[in-house]
Amino acid sequence: MADPIDSALDLLRRLNPKDVKRNVDSLISLNPDLTEDLLESVDIPLSVKKCSKTKRDFLCCDYNRDGDSWRSPWSNEFEPPVDEGEGVTPSDRIRKMEVKANEAFDVYRELYFEGGISSVYLWDMDDGFAGCVLLKKSVSPSPKSSGSWDSIHVFDAQDRARTAHYKLTSTVILSLGTDSEALGGLDLSGNMVRQIEQDLVVDDDSSHVANIGKMVEDMELKMRNLLQEVYFGKAKDVVGDLRSMDLRKKRGRRFSLTEFLGIPPLSQTNRDRATQREMISSMGR
């Protein structure tokens, strides 16, 4: 008999990535024993909560969750509050780095995303520390179109002599959708996971924040370019093939619309204009 968690993950891989949160909730309702394993194994779009103390929004994931409460990176308190002695919070040293990292990525978010929400969470480890950087932006240009970008960067840093070894695992969840009478419905959703390891120089705790920021920035740029090439590049190729297929069958080769209408190509038009200008210039002289 198959392991229930393996069967659940196998099923999720075959369903629409856009509905992953709803599908995970449905599986949990069917088998509550899978709750922890599913939440730890499946990346779902980030949810948003508001810090009651600072009135700032923050992102929720499994790394700042304790039961049904989530720790705010701005106040270091749980929403809703937990009983005294419950809820894991970072040590003073790690908390100071967490505050600096949140300030740095808040600037990064504004520069690269021009909006959205960011949150950074750190926690202690025996040989260093670990953490996650969360970024989310959702847009709705019209009532029938929407898009969202969720990036989850999980890392651990192992302290060494004057250096640190970083391991970064990045996940980007992209969702685009539109529904109109002219074009019909379109749903483009999916996720991408990449991993990298690096050894970087460390002078003090501020160096950790700078190193992590550089790694996340480089990784997001690479993944954005890959997503653009895979999703939009492939869609462009398919549309190009569809709209030129009948013309190739008729003529056996590609030809331009200007050629079909009897309009001279641009290079010929430019040569004619250059000749005309030369003649006018000669007449003026």
Rank of each mutant, 00 (worst) to 15 (best):
R22M: 11
D33S: 13
A2D: 09
R14E: 09
R22C: 07
K18V: 02
L9P: 01
E40W: 08
D37I: 00
P32E: 04
I28P: 02
R14I: 02
K18S: 13
S26H: 07
D37R: 10
E36T: 13
N16S: 10
L39Y: 10
S26A: 15
A8T: 03
I28V: 13
S29R: 15
D3M: 05
P4K: 02
M1G: 08
E40Y: 04
N23A: 14
V42G: 15
D25M: 15
V20H: 06
R22A: 12
D33M: 13
E40F: 14
L15K: 00
N16A: 01
S41D: 04
L30D: 11
E36H: 11
V20D: 09
E36G: 05
V20K: 13
L34T: 15
L38F: 07
K21L: 12
S29L: 13
D37K: 15
L9D: 05
L39C: 08
L11A: 13
N16G: 02
V24Q: 11
D6N: 05
R13F: 03
E36V: 08
V20P: 03
D43Y: 13
S26T: 12
R13T: 07
P32L: 07
I5F: 05
A2S: 06
M1W: 02
P32D: 04
D3V: 01
P32V: 07
L12R: 08
N23I: 03
R22T: 08
L12W: 08
L30N: 12
S29I: 10
M1Q: 04
S7P: 00
L15I: 03
D25W: 12
L12I: 00
D10S: 12
N23C: 00
R14L: 13
L38A: 09
K21D: 06
K21V: 08
S7Q: 14
A2T: 06
L39D: 10
K21R: 15
V20N: 10
P17R: 02
V20A: 03
N31H: 14
E40D: 10
R14Y: 00
D43W: 03
L34I: 13
S41K: 08
D6I: 07
N16K: 03
N31E: 15
R14V: 04
E36N: 14
E40V: 14
L30T: 13
S26Y: 12
A8L: 05
R14N: 07
A8M: 06
K21G: 09
D33I: 11
I28F: 09
L30A: 15
R22S: 08
D33G: 12
L11W: 00
T35E: 14
A8R: 03
L39R: 12
